[in-house]
Simulated assay, not measured.
Amino acid sequence: MRRLTLAVLLVLTGCAPTGGGDSLGFAAVDLSATPETLATHGNQLLVGTRPADHPELVVRGENGALVNSKLIPTTPYGKEAHWYGITSDGTTITGVGGERGGAHGNVRWSAWTGDTRQITEKPQGFSTFGGYGAGELIGPVRTKQGPLIIGTWQSDKAGLDIAVWTYAAETWSRQPSLGTVLESSQELLRFPLAVTPNGDGALVVGWQIAKGAVSAAVWQFDGKSWTTATLPDGDAALAARCWDGTCHVVGRSKGKLAWWSGPEWKKLTTPDVPVGDDAKLAAPVPVNGVPTLFVDHNGVKAVSEKEERPANGLKGEVVAAEAVGGEVFVIVGGRLWRAA
């Protein structure tokens, strides 16, 4: 990756820094629709967007050119979907969309597969993601064995299990959670919140409650089986990203930012940043080799283990962050920004 200097983040290059050090400017990327999610596709950036009433997928090439992938919906709700997540193995793109509807206002899910030229909704049976026992979908994740969709489903014992769907012959199939670390019980309820690729497998993060005690937790898939770990001194793990053999998990502990580094799951000491019970966090990204979290804390800040610095001019909720081809992108305040 080209070197990126972590310092005061500015909307426009040339604005005066306020915290000292070199500045990294951010410039708005001109999109014709609201960005909802980000993903990488090799050295290209995928931006899931939504104009007023339908989804779109924008591909930003290495030269900065923006091209819309052709989307082919096949269901009424697919035509109206918001993006819940996109993933890619560098060749095949997998997406999950959803839009609320029906008598109970539940999310009607749509699953998408394709490449940068064309991505098509693959219709599934209603009971695949919906119907009696259905929970929520967290999003897709690529693994060496193929794409997975992570979500929740009614448990055989209590509450909701963490659920995993696999893909073959254009069909998504939910795998049994019973007897695995993904199942809930009357003694232990599990709640997944986010998923990210991890080597050949995947890392799911969230929280659990056992005998009234709440703790942050992770569930790891190595390509063959699932294992779980409780994160020290944490209430919930909200987002994660893995690179160079290390997973960076961010979440909440007693109303403050918590950051863990795995696979040892050491809790790091970080700047004092409040994180509310209903807060969402974007996954950390590497900036000049430093794991960095963009968070709205009286204005957008760049937070690392060592420091917190302001991002002058960036205001609003931080929805997503990605690093690709030596560049950093963030969705903030309903717009896409690129580190200049």
Rank of each mutant, 00 (worst) to 15 (best):
V330H: 01
V300N: 00
V275C: 13
A258I: 00
G326E: 09
G245S: 11
V319Q: 09
D277R: 14
P291E: 04
T228P: 05
V330I: 08
H297D: 14
N298W: 07
E307W: 10
D278A: 13
T246N: 01
N298F: 13
G255H: 05
G289R: 02
P284N: 04
V250K: 05
K301L: 03
T228H: 05
G333D: 09
V324K: 02
A283S: 14
H297C: 06
E305Q: 13
A237Q: 02
V318R: 00
C247I: 14
K256H: 09
P284G: 06
F294Y: 12
L281P: 11
C242I: 15
F221L: 10
L238Y: 09
V285C: 01
V249P: 08
I331F: 00
W226Q: 07
V285S: 08
T228Y: 00
S304Y: 12
V290D: 04
V218S: 08
W243P: 13
K256D: 13
N288R: 10
F221C: 14
E317R: 07
V250S: 06
T292R: 03
K315S: 13
E327T: 10
A320Y: 12
E322S: 14
V319E: 00
V328L: 14
V330F: 02
F294P: 01
A283W: 02
G289H: 06
T269F: 10
P263L: 06
V287E: 09
V330Y: 09
V328M: 04
V324Q: 03
S261C: 08
K254A: 12
R252L: 10
G223S: 08
V295D: 05
L268F: 10
P274K: 07
P291T: 15
G325K: 00
E317H: 12
V273M: 05
K254T: 14
G333S: 11
K267Y: 00
T228N: 01
A258T: 03
Q220P: 15
R335C: 12
C242K: 15
G262H: 03
N288Y: 10
D278P: 15
W243R: 03
A237L: 05
A311I: 15
A229M: 03
D296R: 03
D277N: 06
D278I: 11
L268W: 12
R309K: 10
A239F: 04
F294T: 13
G245K: 03
K224Y: 06
G276I: 01
D272N: 15
A258H: 02
T228D: 08
W259R: 14
V275K: 05
G333C: 07
D277G: 14
L293C: 15
P232G: 01
G255E: 05
V273P: 07
G245M: 11
P284F: 00
K315E: 12
A279R: 06
K301Q: 13
V218F: 04
E264I: 14
Q220G: 09
T227K: 00
K280D: 12
T269M: 10
F294Q: 07
P310V: 05
K301S: 15
S304C: 06
